[in-house]
Design a protein around this nucleic acid. Sequence first.
DNA 1: CCGTATCCAGTATGATACTG
DNA 2: CAGTATCATACTGGATACGG
Lengths: 130, 130
Amino acid sequence: MKSPFSAKTVQPDISLSVCGYRKVLDIISSKWTALVIYAMEDGIIRYGEIRRRIEGISKKMLTQTLRQLERDGLVKRVITPSVPPIVEYSLTRLGESLLEPMRALNKWTKEHYSLVEQARAAYDQGNNEE
Amino acid sequence: MKSPFSAKTVQPDISLSVCGYRKVLDIISSKWTALVIYAMEDGIIRYGEIRRRIEGISKKMLTQTLRQLERDGLVKRVITPSVPPIVEYSLTRLGESLLEPMRALNKWTKEHYSLVEQARAAYDQGNNEE
DNA sequence: CCGTATCCAGTATGATACTG
DNA sequence: CAGTATCATACTGGATACGG
């Protein structure tokens, strides 16, 4: 038998623009995005509080990530113009809906990540270390 | 009420090394990884065939992505040393197990991505375009 | 407190040409 | 066919300093 794909004419291309995987990843794959969403899982939280919860994030990246999420409609930002100002962030409904599939990924990691680590060790072993 | 986090001492940090989200993303978030996994969804497939299915991927990136996936134990590589050689790729069980949560993401995209696009348009509008 | 602006280094990706 | 090698570049993220 030939390749399963050459049989029925041609399988449609997995083009960048059409593929759903790519679209979600454009949303959540930047270095801090998933962590920031995760930090808002339990409800309203202030800017400084997010920074304290996420080890190692810089102000620049936190702000940038939050703006992106806000633009994507996943996060809501409420400013109380006191002095000093209070800025509170929370997930929108849309943002919350994303938690579900993200939790599925998280679950996969808990259940399978040790196998990935084993595979890596074995692979690096087989390649004579370095 | 104070912030929900300051109440019980301190919520554990969302440190990079511990967080599951980060771990999966380290695996699937590079530009081509998800697409390559997707291309193997239906079974065994040859190198050249993957290239043809994924619009725009270079040989360098395809090879690099496949090696990574192989190292992570998600992909199996079988070489038939004929002339010219035949190299066949397929998902391992571990790789297949990752398809499930990835499909959950894909489903989310199908159902919600239009909202994201709307949110972006509205946001860009509000910010006076550019 | 909550940012913005600037600069700079490291990494990820891409184009092209060559090989067993 | 299935890669590797090399070079060029664009983007990402971090450090630092300043502003409302």
